[in-house]
């Protein structure tokens, strides 16, 4: 029971992190990036590449992979997505879905379509506390998420650039008037959410193995973001954890097959009762 709770929490954290990426980009640029899951996949593969091909240590590879994917995210924004700002949402959705497909085929060309395991310091280790076996992989996911969220919170609340990013996402025009370089802020947001996706991918790698379809997890993370109220950062994490827990518990106690749909059933119910999601608010502008 406790074991299940812990594992559900860990899986939920991954969903939450990817959902966080969705929300960050949506809040800032009002784009929905459906390639978020595939960025996560790229993160896992890049880390794998540094560890297995080039023999880098896990931590070095971790940092290198996150930085690489974050830079890639920023480049993606300035080269591709900046051009579709202001275009209909539909165009953006198709574009990011297309980008996701490109990333997947890129991954299969470069790294091949086999399934890989990423050796980590946490692999196949476990601690027993009070009769519960806790594997270090799951602990690392939860701890990683907590640390990352604390760091992001501190960044957005206490640093000048962080507050400016909030400002730019709340009122783009006014941010321009303040002399905030809004375009650079958007690229930075993309870098952060790509970096967060990469971290999620790397943390997930020892648990779920790496293959090019890792990115389809992004769909569930999207559900998590909607469940939490699209546009709410705590909501994204709460939504992710909720979906993770529902998935594992329904897998354990309910008939076969329910596991895969349980999360979506809950999503439907929540949206029927509270259309703005768990943490969503309906913003009104005072006139």
């Amino acid at each position: 029971m406790l074991q299940l709770l812990l594992n559900g929490l860990a899986v939920g954290c991954i969903y939450g992190l990817v959902a966080l990426g969705f929300v960050l980009i949506y809040k800032a640029t009002e784009l929905v990036n459906f390639a978020q899951g595939d960025l996560m996949m790229l993160g896992a593969f890049t880390c794998y590449m540094f560890v297995v091909w080039y023999g880098a240590g896990y931590w070095l590879a971790f940092v290198l992979a996150v930085v690489t994917v974050a830079l890639f995210g920023a480049a993606l924004d300035s080269a591709v997505l900046r051009r579709v700002l202001g275009q209909p949402q539909f165009a953006v959705v198709m574009l990011t879905i297309g980008l996701g497909a490109i990333f997947r085929s890129f991954a299969s060309i470069v790294w091949g379509s086999e399934i890989y395991t990423l050796p980590t310091p946490f692999s196949a280790r476990a601690t027993r506390i009070a009769g519960v076996t806790i594997s270090h992989e799951y602990i690392s996911i939860i701890a990683g998420t907590v640390i990352l969220c604390a760091a992001l919170y501190a960044f957005f609340t206490f640093t000048r650039v962080g507050v400016a990013m909030q400002a730019a996402s709340q009122n783009q025009l006014a941010a321009y008037y303040m002399g905030i370089p809004v375009k650079r802020m958007f690229s930075l947001i993309w870098a952060i959410s790509a970096g967060v996706a990469a971290i999620a991918g790397i943390l997930l790698a020892p648990v779920s193995l790496i293959d090019i379809n890792l990115g389809f997890l992004g769909l569930k993370a999207f559900a998590a973001a909607v469940l939490g109220g699209f546009g709410s950062i705590p909501g994204a994490l709460a939504g992710g954890v909720t979906i993770g827990l529902i998935e594992l518990f329904s897998g354990a106690y309910l008939p076969q097959g329910v596991k895969d749909v349980a999360a979506y059933v809950v999503l439907l119910v929540v949206l029927a009762i509270r259309p703005q999601g768990m943490f969503g608010t309906i913003a009104r502008k005072k006139v």
């Binding site: 909030q166 709340q170 009122n171």
Partner: peptide, 21 residues
């Protein structure tokens, strides 16, 4: 700008500090 373009979810003090960005 026209129409009070403030940053609605930042505090008044933070809004002012953004002015000095």
């Amino acid at each position: 700008p026209e129409g009070r373009e403030v940053f609605p979810f930042l505090s008044a003090a933070e809004n002012l500090r953004m002015g000095a960005y």
